[in-house]
């Protein structure tokens, strides 16, 4: 597995990709807060909120199929919870939706709203990370005041996840090509523990080598980046447009729909 599979779209180019990562991060954060604070019977306005991540994804040329697939992959837990609502709240609610007029249990209303909120907030998150290179996002977070050590951690982590996952896959393949049948609990645990242990030792060894390599190149304890992002006019425009959209939804449209 290579990271290109997960955030390949972050390396495209579009007006959204060129924006300052700090602006995007803050907008997504505010957006998520507002969506989460919506009351339970706000299915209509959720659609209006959905316009924003949709617009970012489309302008940023992220295939919608990819985005929705990603939503599906992370959804099992929330689906399980959402589907438990109809069992617990079964009082009927009279609902009118345009020309239709029907009774539906409150549990189903909540179920739809919760899954809708989930979809919208995950789409917003996907819109953020698939239009921003992770290194840019990190330098943005660093300049927003995240602790330097943590930002460096995230950088290392991102760089080496895929290297180590490759190693783990080699080990797993070796196990499955040698194991012809189930080995019984004790041996299985022992084999898995040895696999994790040898992976750990390899990781520690490679950390030593990386450290020596970094020392040789003059690592002083902080990262220095060549391309510092600057807050440009486009970023201001983006922030204003997003702010106007969110404010309009919150203060003008929302009172009508709820």
């Amino acid at each position: 597995m290579h990271h290109a599979h997960i955030d390949k779209f972050a390396y495209q180019d579009s007006p959204i990709h060129r924006l300052d990562s700090r602006v995007k991060f803050i907008v997504v954060m505010v957006f998520t807060f507002l969506v989460i604070s919506l009351p339970v019977d706000s299915f209509g306005i959720l659609f209006c909120y959905a316009v924003w991540p949709f617009a970012i994804l489309v302008i940023g040329r992220i295939p919608l199929k990819f985005a929705f697939k990603q939503v599906l992959i992370v959804s099992p837990f929330i689906l399980f919870l959402a589907l438990s609502y109809p069992f617990y709240e079964r009082g009927l609610v009279r609902t009118e939706f345009g020309p239709w007029n029907f009774e539906i249990s409150l549990g189903w209303v909540k179920c739809f709203t919760i899954s809708g909120k989930f979809t919208v907030t995950v789409l917003a998150l996907i819109a953020l990370v698939s239009t921003t290179k992770f290194s840019n996002l990190l330098s943005g977070l660093g300049r927003l005041g995240f602790p330097k050590l943590l930002v460096m951690q995230l950088g290392f982590l991102y760089r080496y996840i895929f290297v180590l996952i490759d190693k783990a896959q080699h080990i797993l393949m070796a196990r499955s090509s040698r194991r012809m049948r189930s080995l019984g609990v004790k041996r299985e645990v022992k084999v898995a523990a040895s696999m994790a242990g040898s992976l750990l030792i390899r990781s520690i060894d490679s950390a030593e080598k990386i450290n020596i390599a970094m020392q040789a190149r003059g690592f002083s304890g902080t990262w220095k980046s060549v391309n510092e992002q600057k807050f440009r006019r486009g970023d201001l425009l983006f922030a204003l447009v997003c702010g106007a959209f969110i404010m309009a939804l919150h203060f003008i449209v929302r009172p009508f729909l709820i």
Partner: peptide, 18 residues
């Protein structure tokens, strides 16, 4: 610093060992 970073990545890899 390097060790901690790699250890984070190790956690990801170790989660694949089932």
């Amino acid at each position: 610093v390097a060790l901690m970073g790699i250890m984070g990545a190790f956690v990801f890899a170790a989660q694949m060992v089932n």
